[in-house]
């Protein structure tokens, strides 16, 4: 399978993981390792550089794991830029998952503020991966603004509803010049497979693994599903047709 390239980094695994919602940091670490993921997102607001108690990031100190800090909790571009600057200092990375959701109920991303922040942050040298609605036009605007990838949602965060936005995701994948990572809503390994078969470059999964009965086994299941989906995409799926053969051909008369 082809490696995934975002900015100047190559990834063998096309499964990204979120680190929230786990019952313990140990559960989280085991799931991350079982998933084979090389890109793990961490909410900056939960990172504590001051005290060295049981920390999220101490559990992610593995050479193959890249940290992708996110701005979860911010409501506008200004707050996002503040958080990004804190991140760059604290975590020594210029990679950023940009999440701006002014609506704390459904955590819907704000397209206007996201575009504004992406523009600014890209100029400041950040590798920006914005979380957005499955909006094809916004994706193109973000490309112009200097985004390094786009992360459209499959369904609202945490809902496990799957690829509700499928039709729009297809358009985004078709048109995009930057990697498309489907984020949010992926509830089962079959959803992840489906996303990869559609040609998504990667998927990001959190809730479906974190709140599973056995997060580690579920992480493994997602790993296999993502690989299977990608393999199928690269092997090129056969055409879908509604019936095997036309029962009464309409152009038969031409041969008579």
């Amino acid at each position: 399978m082809k490696p995934l390239k975002i900015a100047d980094k190559e990834f063998t695994s096309r499964l990204f993981l979120g680190t929230g919602k786990f019952g313990s940091n140990k559960d989280m670490e085991e799931a991350v390792l079982a998933s084979g993921s090389e890109m793990v997102t961490v909410a900056l607001k939960r990172v504590d550089m001051e005290t060295d108690t049981d920390q999220i990031i101490t559990h992610l100190q593995h050479p193959h794991i890249n940290l992708l800090p996110n701005t979860s909790g911010v409501r506008n571009a200004k707050e996002a830029i503040f958080a990004a600057q804190l991140t760059r200092e604290a975590m020594e990375t210029n990679w950023l998952k940009l999440e701006i959701h002014p609506d704390p109920k459904y955590l819907m991303p704000d397209p206007i503020e996201t575009l504004k922040a992406t523009e600014e942050l890209a100029k400041m040298g950040f590798i920006v991966l914005p979380y957005i609605h499955a909006d094809p036009v916004l994706c193109k605007r973000l490309e112009d603004a200097g985004t390094s990838a786009v992360m459209p949602l499959g369904a609202p965060i945490g809902t496990n509803k799957g690829l509700k936005a499928e039709t729009f995701l297809e358009i985004i994948i078709e048109q995009s010049r930057v990697p498309v990572i489907i984020d949010a809503g992926i509830g089962a390994p079959s959803d992840a497979s489906k996303a990869m078969e559609m040609g998504a470059d990667a998927v990001l999964v959190n809730t479906a693994i974190a709140v599973a009965g056995n997060p580690r086994e579920m992480a493994k299941a997602f790993k296999l599903a993502v690989e299977a989906g990608r393999m199928a995409f690269e092997a090129r799926l056969g055409k879908i047709s509604s019936h095997a053969e036309a029962s009464s051909p309409l152009t038969q008369f031409l041969n008579e």
Binding site: F22, G23, S24, N25, A43, L44, K45, R46, V47, D48, E50, T53, G73, E79, F82, A83, L86
Partner: peptide, 17 residues
């Protein structure tokens, strides 16, 4: 809380914001 299978979260916002 840990014994119940839950993670106690001490920090969930940005210092100074």
């Amino acid at each position: 809380i840990r014994k119940k299978g839950y993670e106690p979260v001490w920090k969930d916002w940005f210092v100074g914001q």
